[in-house]
Amino acid sequence: MLPFTMEKPESAEAAIAAAAGGARYIAGGTTLVDLMREEVERPERLVDINALPLGGIRVEGDDLVIGALARMSEVAADRNVQRLQPLIAESLIEGASPQLRNMASMGGNMLQRVRCPYFRMLDAGCNKRTPGSGCAAIDGLNAGHAILGTSEHCVATHPSDVAVALVALDATMRVRGPEGERSFPIEELFRLPGDTPHLEHTLLPGELIVELRVPGGPYSRRARYLKVRDRASYEFALVSAAAALSVEGGVIREARLAVGGVGTRPWRLRDCEAALVGKRLERPAFEAAAHLATQGARPLQHNHFKVELLPRTIVRALEMAGEVA
């Protein structure tokens, strides 16, 4: 680990001021400390934001508002979260371990780095870590990599579970930076790798995540998160799906669907959603919609199975959400 200096401001303004000139914010540190030890992350200055008043979970009208510093475990255990947005609670407890969930903040979770093994290896080419150094995964061992949103420069999957749920639920994010505050859909936080895989998100320099806002919808309480993996717990998803349905008289009125483990960012499936609306809450409709999910999929040498597994996971998640099997 490279030497660094640490500051601990007590207000957002002070933190933003402290971060000017390229310091990194640190909250739970579960990603950053791990990667600093590998020297994949090499910050010279850290700004510890844990003293900032950015925690807490509250309800505003139909919206659930989650502070950026709220811990994963705290959000998952919150009664309002469980009542209003069970999908978020379920995706949270399926992610990481109880210890890591006690540490990791919601804001940090959005910014966690990829799990591509070559990204962690200083002696392998990785355009995300070292722009221009090539991608060892494209011709390497890429079974865990993405089939959607890849480029010739990067094929790593986004690792977050709860981000998949948040993207499905049209959540927004409020950030504060040197130029003031702004809000935008969380989906817009995540960049596609394109030819700049080292740029992972759309935050401007010095911007601090303040809170996440999840609008309530008629589908919010009929929502499930399915994470498919070889080990029952403590493993990243091979494929995951967040599905939420609004149903009247056995007919789907509205659907929200996003998937993880297959995309270079949390992957919203609006075509699939559209295909579900107006259909009866039955497996054939799920299968027809799920079939659309792999349009544009570009499997690599070792992850063809995800093309098969993705629609199956979606169908199963829809069945779980629809409580039909």
């Binding site: 093994p117 070889d230 080990r231 029952a232 717990s233 493993e235």
Partner: peptide, 13 residues
């Protein structure tokens, strides 16, 4: 070569 990538059974398994 990482404890999260070399899978071994956990309690839930």
């Amino acid at each position: 070569a990482h404890m999260a990538d070399y899978l071994m059974p956990v309690n839930l398994d």
